[in-house]
Design a protein around this nucleic acid. Structure first.
Lengths: 160, 160
DNA sequence: ACTAAGCATCTCACTACTAAGATAATAGAT
DNA sequence: ATCTATTATCTTAGTAGTGAGATGCTTAGT
């Protein structure tokens, strides 16, 4: 017992950093490995993850203001303009005026965009399920709880 | 009990996908929130995460072949050339010939690069520790174990 | 009404890469 | 020795964004 107590503080601090560093590395690597699966799946349909994220938001929530989409998928204001332009060029999304605010624009799926999502979404959900299959469902739930806590705390801390 | 048993298989499968999808979302968000902290910390020293990753590898392992660095930090072959060029322009890294293979080049920290890492590394480890502080150390270890398992399985599955 | 402040979106210049292919060197088989 | 396949790095063109600032619209205070 005295052995533990005699350990200097500095070692405690560096141990804590080492623990955090390990988590940092495996977090980055896991995210990357999973992303590679989902990117590959979507590339088969000619979509990037970000493009899919936009389509998915509109698919499940209906028309959204550009700013709402932007906050949801976490890109810059320039980025959302660029991405919606590209999706509009391909006829998957269209801009609509907002009746109550003439500054604002809605993004909405076209019929073609909706049809694409009908086709792509179930397979993509399945691809994610397969990518996560290295963990049992119980462990997936544990990991989800831990990562949610971690992410929320880190995001809150960033805002200060 | 008969209620549980009477549930159709299809619902089970879609439940599994829903579990995986939740994990997918929190994984991406946590990684992003943490990255924002580490990016901010490194930007104060004029470094990106990728540049730091190269310097860190050389700092702790000594000179490495460009290909070794590339595999370690997971960038393309063009990317490692570009990144080492930039670091070399700033005098932090230098290329050295390989005595036994004239195709190969070592990347090595210059004295200036080493001095920079002496200055930057401890603070960065501390910034990571703070970014992870939303989780107790015990939970950090749990998360590390789960993510390691997840990442290794996903990476192995990608290779097939 | 008028003005100041704040927003939503867009434009533009730039950055950090990737991917494909070129170049040069090496290793193995004949 | 020579040819082939492989490997290590570099070059080039293109992509998916970011960030600062511009524009046009709205809201609140006076």
């Amino acid at each position: 017992m005295t052995i533990t107590l005699s350990a200097p503080r500095r070692v405690q601090a560096s141990d804590a950093a080492a623990t955090a560093l390990k988590l940092y590395v495996v977090l980055a690597r896991a995210q990357r490995a999973i992303s590679e699966h989902t990117e590959t799946d979507l590339a088969a349909h000619g979509l990037t993850i970000t493009e899919f994220a936009i389509l998915e938001a509109l698919y499940h929530k209906g028309p959204l203001l550009l700013g709402e989409v932007q906050r949801k998928i976490l890109v810059s204001s320039g980025g959302i303009t660029f991405l919606v332009d590209k999706l509009a060029d391909r006829g998957l999304v269209e801009r609509k005026l907002c009746a109550t605010d003439r500054r604002a624009r809605y993004a909405a799926l076209t019929r073609k965009g909706e049809a694409l999502m009908d086709e792509v979404f179930p397979g993509h959900a399945e691809a994610i399920r397969e990518a996560m299959a290295g963990l049992s469902r119980a462990d997936q739930k544990k990991a989800t709880a831990l990562l949610k806590q971690l992410g929320l705390a880190a995001a809150a801390d960033a805002k200060r």
